[in-house]
Amino acid sequence: MISPHLEAAVPSPRDRQARLATFAVYAVQGLSFATLLTQVAHLQDKHGLDTGALTILLLIVPVFAGVGSVSAGSIAARLGSKALLRVAQPAVAAAVVLAGLAPNVPLLVPALLLFGVAVGAVDAGMNMQGVAVERRYGRAVLNGFHCLWSVLSLAGALWVSAVGDGLPLEAVMAIPMVLAVAGSLYAGPKLYTAAEEQVAPETATAGGRVPFRPILPLCLAMAFLYVGDAAVSNFSTVFMQDTMAADARVIPLAYAAYQATTLLVRLAGDLAVRKYGPASIVRLGGAIATLGFLGIVAAPSQPLAVVAFGLTGVGLSVVAPQSFSAAGKLDPAGTGNAIALVNLFNYVGFIVGSALVGAIAEAADMRVAFAAPLVLAAAIILLARGFAPRVRAGA
């Protein structure tokens, strides 16, 4: 069943080329993000950080990613997301390498600052490209892009699990970034230009403004999703190490399970959305994520904890692609403003999640801390109807 807001089209060779390049951009971003985030526990040990100091340090990334995302909206409106991605994506890889090389906290901070700004710009830009591909293909394809993001995130986590004990931290973080830079250099020239991203100006809303009421549920769901994602990404390794007493090879498996199940769901995500509609898929995802976080809070053993982290991946995996897809429908002229706004709440959620989970863990323990994303995952169920926005003809 084709979405009523997408008109089926036969993709041209140029569309297929841009789609392959967009796949590469998502893949590089997944690899880069996982390479840094799976090293949080090791960075904590290297620099002698307690949980409170680690939480404050980790907040640098989403705060400055929000700056990058907002800047991406204005830059892409003038130059297109292609120009943005060709600069920002190699900067992400450089920041990961610098974070691994940093000998002390004062030098780690600017590396995380660069990572944050560049990640925010890439997140917004790659989803602008993804929505442009979806619009030109005339059918749901965004889950496929996010699926490949998950493939490379999983690969990054498994890389750390396999070589984390045998190589220095600096090498573990730098080697995958060689592939990341190569992928970004391949993709950059083949992405859609600004003229190809945008569509006829007569479809634009006045002044390119984003309608507030229909986009609010998407922003809230994105924020709640990333509270959960921040909890898993920032603290799954700490939870496994400190709460579950896991060894170095088991510690990354919680994040790997999260990314593996995210991948499996996204493999069939586009087909499911076409058949059942985005609202139903997001509603089911919220329920499964709630169950997963409940499992983390109550997990009696390492294997069950890993399974619970996997369940959160099943549930949360569908929310981001459908948020961007729905935002694209609210911006039919393709200005990128709606996508940049929804993407900003990615970092709002990540900031709140990092601060909230870290603060609760400091005051109580890590099990209690994971109850916060449990509640917000349940709230996504109530927001699901907003993922099938009604768009006025010509608006």
Rank of each mutant, 00 (worst) to 15 (best):
P4Y: 04
E7P: 02
P13T: 05
D15Q: 02
D15P: 00
Q17V: 12
Y26L: 09
Y26M: 13
A27E: 10
S32A: 10
T35F: 02
L37E: 11
D45M: 12
G48Y: 01
L49K: 08
D50S: 10
G52I: 05
G52Y: 03
A53H: 04
L58G: 12
F64C: 15
G66A: 11
G68H: 08
S74W: 10
A76G: 12
A77C: 05
G80P: 05
K82D: 03
A83P: 01
L85Q: 03
Q89I: 07
A91D: 05
V92Y: 01
A93H: 02
A93Q: 03
V97N: 13
P106Q: 14
L107C: 08
P110V: 14
P110A: 14
P110F: 11
L114F: 04
L114E: 08
A118D: 10
A121I: 05
A124N: 12
N127P: 01
M128V: 04
A132W: 09
A132P: 07
E134A: 14
R136V: 05
G144M: 05
H146C: 08
L148N: 05
V151Y: 03
V163W: 05
D165W: 00
D165Q: 11
D165N: 11
G166S: 13
L169A: 13
M177V: 09
A180V: 09
A180L: 08
A180M: 09
G183W: 00
S184I: 01
Y186L: 13
L191R: 02
A195R: 10
Q198W: 05
A200C: 12
P201S: 15
P201K: 14
T205D: 06
A206S: 14
G207Q: 04
R209H: 04
V210G: 04
P211F: 15
L216P: 04
L216F: 08
C219R: 14
L225R: 13
D229E: 11
V232A: 09
T237Q: 14
F239D: 09
M240Q: 14
T243W: 02
A245S: 15
A245C: 13
D247Q: 06
D247L: 08
A254W: 00
A256R: 00
A257N: 07
T262I: 15
R266P: 00
R266S: 08
L271D: 10
A272P: 00
A272G: 01
V273S: 15
R274W: 07
Y276G: 14
P278G: 15
R283D: 01
I288M: 06
I288A: 03
V297T: 07
A299D: 02
S301E: 13
G310H: 02
T312V: 04
S317D: 07
V318W: 03
G334T: 11
G336R: 08
G336T: 12
V342E: 05
L344G: 07
Y347P: 06
G349V: 11
I351C: 12
I351L: 15
S354Q: 06
A359K: 15
I360W: 04
I360A: 10
I360E: 01
I360Y: 01
A361K: 13
D365Q: 06
V368R: 09
A377E: 00
A377S: 09
A379P: 00
I381D: 09
L383H: 10
R390W: 04
A393R: 02
A393Y: 00
A395P: 00
